[in-house]
């Protein structure tokens, strides 16, 4: 299997990722409201159910294009390993751990801050070794500086900016 090479983020990627982060804020807000009405299990269940239906409808709409793209991808990277289908289970576990953690003395801010620490740690490890068949990428000085700035800004917002006022 060949690995693609990762590159510095172009403006298109920056906009896409930033926009996707905004999307996540909205999704978390909606799912939080679903949880407020029906509990954490229901919230996660409905989000995955609606997501499955929406993804299936979208796929049906553009199936010709998707099938062609998937065939080409398989040609280049081979059959996906079986474990690659199992990420959904981790999403389910995440929901349960989150509802425990948010209701512990850590509350939302502590959960978010430690969650960010976990995300940063594993991202660094994943890029360094190219975990699970994805590209390796070593950080240079610029990457390190942007890492420190974004991590500091995020923690400042979580711990002192929102929620605690």
């Amino acid at each position: 299997m060949t690995s693609p090479t990762a590159q510095r983020a172009k403006p298109l990627y920056l906009l896409a990722a930033f926009g996707s982060g905004c999307l996540l804020t909205c999704a978390v807000f909606f799912n939080g409201e679903a949880g407020r009405f029906g509990g954490a299990m229901f919230s996660s269940w409905q989000a995955h159910g609606v997501g499955t239906v929406v993804a299936a409808l979208l796929l049906a709409f553009i199936w010709r294009r998707e099938r062609k793209a998937a065939a080409e991808a398989r040609e280049t990277y081979g059959k996906p390993p079986l474990w690659a289908y199992l990420a959904g289970i981790l999403g389910g576990i995440t929901v349960i751990l989150t509802s425990w953690s948010v209701n512990s003395p850590l509350a939302l801010a502590g959960t978010l801050a430690l969650g960010l620490a976990g995300q940063f740690t594993l991202s660094l490890i994943a890029d360094y070794w190219g975990l699970l068949g994805l590209p390796k990428r070593r950080l240079d000085m610029r990457d390190t500086a942007s890492f420190v700035l974004i991590a500091a800004g995020s923690l400042l917002i979580i711990l002192f900016g929102v929620g605690s006022a």
Binding site: P4, E66, A69, A70, A73, R74, Y77, G78, K79, P80, P81, W83, A84, Y85, L86, A87, G88, L90, G91, I93, T94, L97, T98, W100, S101, S104, L106, G110, T111, A113, L114, G115, L116, A117, G118, Q119, F120, T121, L122, S123, A126, L131, L132, G133, L134
Partner: peptide, 24 residues
């Protein structure tokens, strides 16, 4: 738990990313 949540988020993105390489 809270730290593990962060690990799981990245792990799941990594795994979904691997599946997307061979599909879309």
């Amino acid at each position: 738990f809270a730290f593990v949540i962060g690990l799981l988020i990245i792990l799941s993105r990594q795994i979904n990313g691997r599946l997307s390489l061979s599909t879309t």
